[in-house]
Amino acid sequence: MNLDVVFDVVASICLVAGALLSLAAGVALVRFPDLLTRMHAAAKPQVLGLLLVLVGCALRLRTGVDITTLVLVGAFSLATAPVAAHMVGRVAYPHEDIRTDLLVTDELAAHLDRVADEREHSAPA
């Protein structure tokens, strides 16, 4: 079997799998009940789906300049998606936009209570 055919088959599998993961992330954004689960759906499968699509494109294109651009897109996506999801979660938590009954552990509550106590005690009278 020709090596080009193998690359094309693997690229097709990566493209379809990446598209399905991205579709699942989009459906989860609509269907999940609260912000934290939606944030998880937006960050994890969407990034993996994008990386699979980029790998499929790289296998299909096989030119140096195009692959460099795809690597940069993947690197920036890996660097920014978790940070953005973390910041959205931190901003939404104090505003009670999450369902605390779905949390297994709540490590942020103790930290926010401690910060609020410190601000209260350090405020001028």
Score class of each variant (00 low, 15 high):
T68A: 14
S122Q: 02
T68N: 07
D106I: 04
L108W: 08
L70Q: 03
A81S: 15
S22P: 10
R119Y: 12
L23V: 09
I13Q: 02
A28H: 05
V47P: 01
T80E: 15
R38L: 09
A28T: 13
R62V: 07
L59E: 01
L48F: 01
L52R: 08
A125C: 14
A92L: 00
F7K: 15
D117I: 12
A123S: 07
S77Y: 09
A19D: 03
H95Y: 14
D8F: 04
L36I: 06
G26T: 14
R119E: 10
M1H: 06
A11T: 01
V55I: 15
V47T: 09
A43E: 09
S122E: 13
P94Y: 13
A75R: 15
P33M: 14
L70V: 08
G89H: 02
V30C: 11
V30N: 10
G56Q: 02
A79C: 12
V5Q: 15
L103R: 13
I13P: 06
L23H: 06
V47E: 01
V71L: 15
A110N: 01
T63C: 08
L103N: 04
R38G: 12
H121N: 08
L103V: 15
A58G: 06
A24L: 13
A85G: 10
P94A: 09
L61S: 13
D106R: 07
D4V: 10
A17E: 06
